[in-house]
Design a protein around this nucleic acid. Structure first.
Lengths: 143, 143
DNA sequence: TTCCTTGCAAAACTTTTGCATTAAA
DNA sequence: TTTAATGCAAAAGTTTTGCAAGGAA
């Protein structure tokens, strides 16, 4: 069984295509950052991404990680979450969805759209329209 | 018409009672901070509260403002919100409710509970129970 | 060449903490 | 007199920015 990837970590070619499709030049650092975050649906902080990159031998600066994550978010490649005040979380799942937030562990868990149904929502104030709905269901240990 | 407040800004006696009721010793600085935030339902940042206090001549340190807001929040006197990643917002309305977030102006607007109705919610993962639901409806300018 | 990207350090900003001083019970 | 609260400065943590160097088109 042969490796169909010419070089680099699994999925890096797919990452390159996704960056190009968003009009982002797929430089080495950007592809590495995308490989870490976009491989599976997950929520990572900038520091976690930096740590993963350093662990697998990627030479990248903190500034580049932050700037690149902001770039990705502005192009809709990732989603930035404000779940707790302490830091930003970057979500590789940009399809509409909601979140469980486990207050004990700090973990974030995706909640698919069909799991939530609104039978009533307030009309947006005059002159405005709804840009999005962020729903966070906080969880604590039972009992 | 006489002033029924012995001294200090309007409502400070009511603030004192509320602090005492929460088991918080109503010191001068705490009552001043409570007067600024609790007077009406509103959302203020720590810096905004500090600025208001300085404006009306209250001598208070930044550390005391932060420590006091954390104390108030831990006793359920106010609610701390994570709406955008930039800073914490302190909400004088501790009754359950949701929020509009105007992305243009940054303004936060309360949404009363009856304005939202869930006809379906996901069951919390095993071993956990729902501690609260935070709903933020993001608004943009129409058209 | 020209423009874009990166790294590094420093800065900016929010929030917390250590400690000496002050105020309250 | 004993404990708790405050102010100040410094520290801590996250994120942004300025600028020189490096790389791609």
């Amino acid at each position: 069984m042969m490796n169909t990837e010419a070089a680099g970590p699994a999925g890096s070619n797919r990452c390159e295509s996704r960056l190009s499709a968003c009009g982002i030049r797929p430089t080495a650092q950007r592809v590495r950052i995308a490989s870490v975050l976009l491989s599976v649906p997950q929520h990572l902080s900038a520091e976690q991404i930096l740590a993963h990159l350093r662990d697998n031998g990627t030479r990248v600066s903190k500034a580049t990680v932050y700037n690149t994550l902001n770039l990705f978010a502005s192009r809709g490649l990732i989603r930035q979450l404000s779940v707790d005040g302490s830091r930003a979380w970057f979500d590789s799942n940009v399809d509409p969805h909601y979140h469980f937030h486990d207050l004990t562990s700090g973990a974030l868990i995706d909640v698919p759209v069909p799991a939530v149904e609104f039978s009533r929502l307030p009309p947006p104030p005059p002159g405005t329209e709804v840009a999005g709905i962020d729903l966070v269901i906080r969880l604590r240990k039972k009992q």
